[in-house]
Computed example of a mutant assay.
Amino acid sequence: MQKNVSTFDNSLLTGAGLLLLFIFIGVFAPWITPHDPFAIDLSNRLSPPTWAYPFGTDHLGRCLFSRIIYGIRTSVTSAFVIMLVTLLISVPIGLLTGYLRGRTDQFFMRWIDGTLVIPDIVLTIAIVGVLGPGLFHLILAIIIVRWATYVRLIRSLVLKVCQEEYILSARMSGNTSLRIMQRYILPQIASPVAVFCSLDLGRIVLLIAGLSFLGLGSQPPTPEWGVMMHDATAYFQVAPHVMIFPGMAISLFVLGCQVISERIRKAGQPISREV
């Protein structure tokens, strides 16, 4: 058992370390980057990695290392904003619909069912197409699409918790609905919601990068991972590093989210004595 717990802790440290590293680099980007991420030097375009340019340069001679670091501020910060706003919207709605039920539950569930009929990526593209390309519009579109998934998850968890006997005891003891949701239900659903959020954070970064790659998110010359990969498509055969390094940044961030979510999920399960 101790060996498995140690393995779990190492996994959590690995995932958390990756995310903290990204956050640290993003916060201190102006002091870490060796070059201006917007500075153009056509005489040094598509240069391979060197000591002066650790990740090489892009088709305009801009430092890839500096642009990837500043890309953390765009991609990762946008993902955290989307996650925070989505939770602020979905947690109260999920708690109310799962606990109170009735007409409120029926109204939101019909609305959510209609939203979830359309695939996330298709609906997001449609909303951005109506609003117009841009990072703010992309963030707004993802929030509009993702909140329904969170509400359905939280509602299902609340319905399961409400079947427990201690919830009935809390009601019979005279606790208000607000107190029951805050003190008894919310702590019980926190762990599975955290697992889903950790995993979904990586998905959101992939979604931001993918839609920016299609030209629907951040626009050049903004240093964003998806935009960088889009700019690199025409030069991948002659200078593969221009696409490899932004792709590695996305992969490492998603890996960190995956490891953390898996660790939290396993921590929520009782460890069998036979293990």
Results as ranks from 00 to 15, higher is better:
150 Y>K: 12
175 N>T: 13
251 S>L: 13
238 V>N: 05
161 V>T: 08
248 M>F: 15
185 I>P: 00
236 F>Y: 06
244 I>R: 05
187 P>C: 04
206 L>H: 04
209 A>D: 02
233 T>K: 14
242 V>G: 01
219 Q>K: 03
243 M>A: 14
214 L>Q: 08
166 Y>K: 10
159 L>A: 07
255 L>K: 08
190 A>R: 15
241 H>N: 02
217 G>R: 00
194 A>E: 14
155 R>T: 08
247 G>P: 10
159 L>C: 13
248 M>H: 07
221 P>Y: 12
210 G>V: 05
234 A>I: 09
256 G>K: 04
211 L>E: 04
250 I>A: 05
194 A>N: 09
198 S>Y: 02
216 L>D: 02
204 I>E: 00
171 R>F: 06
188 Q>F: 05
252 L>K: 10
246 P>V: 00
243 M>N: 05
235 Y>D: 14
228 M>V: 03
258 Q>T: 15
185 I>F: 00
220 P>R: 12
180 I>A: 01
238 V>I: 12
184 Y>S: 03
221 P>M: 08
225 W>L: 10
190 A>C: 14
254 V>M: 11
168 L>G: 10
180 I>R: 01
246 P>Q: 01
246 P>E: 12
163 Q>R: 14
192 P>I: 10
171 R>V: 11
226 G>D: 05
165 E>K: 09
246 P>T: 00
158 V>K: 00
195 V>I: 14
237 Q>G: 13
222 T>M: 11
185 I>H: 00
153 L>G: 08
192 P>V: 02
201 L>T: 09
239 A>D: 02
218 S>M: 09
258 Q>E: 13
185 I>D: 01
258 Q>M: 05
245 F>N: 01
206 L>P: 01
248 M>G: 06
199 L>P: 03
216 L>R: 05
146 R>A: 13
174 G>I: 03
219 Q>L: 04
199 L>M: 12
195 V>A: 11
175 N>Y: 09
201 L>M: 07
177 S>R: 11
203 R>A: 07
193 V>D: 08
197 C>E: 15
240 P>T: 07
187 P>L: 00
186 L>E: 06
169 S>M: 13
183 R>V: 11
163 Q>N: 15
240 P>V: 07
200 D>C: 14
245 F>W: 11
251 S>R: 06
190 A>G: 15
242 V>T: 12
222 T>V: 06
194 A>K: 12
156 S>T: 13
168 L>T: 15
239 A>T: 03
167 I>K: 06
171 R>I: 11
147 W>R: 07
249 A>F: 09
176 T>I: 10
251 S>G: 15
182 Q>P: 03
227 V>Y: 00
242 V>F: 00
244 I>Q: 04
164 E>G: 12
184 Y>L: 02
188 Q>W: 02
198 S>K: 07
213 F>M: 05
250 I>S: 06
156 S>M: 12
198 S>I: 02
219 Q>A: 01
221 P>A: 04
178 L>W: 10
242 V>Q: 01
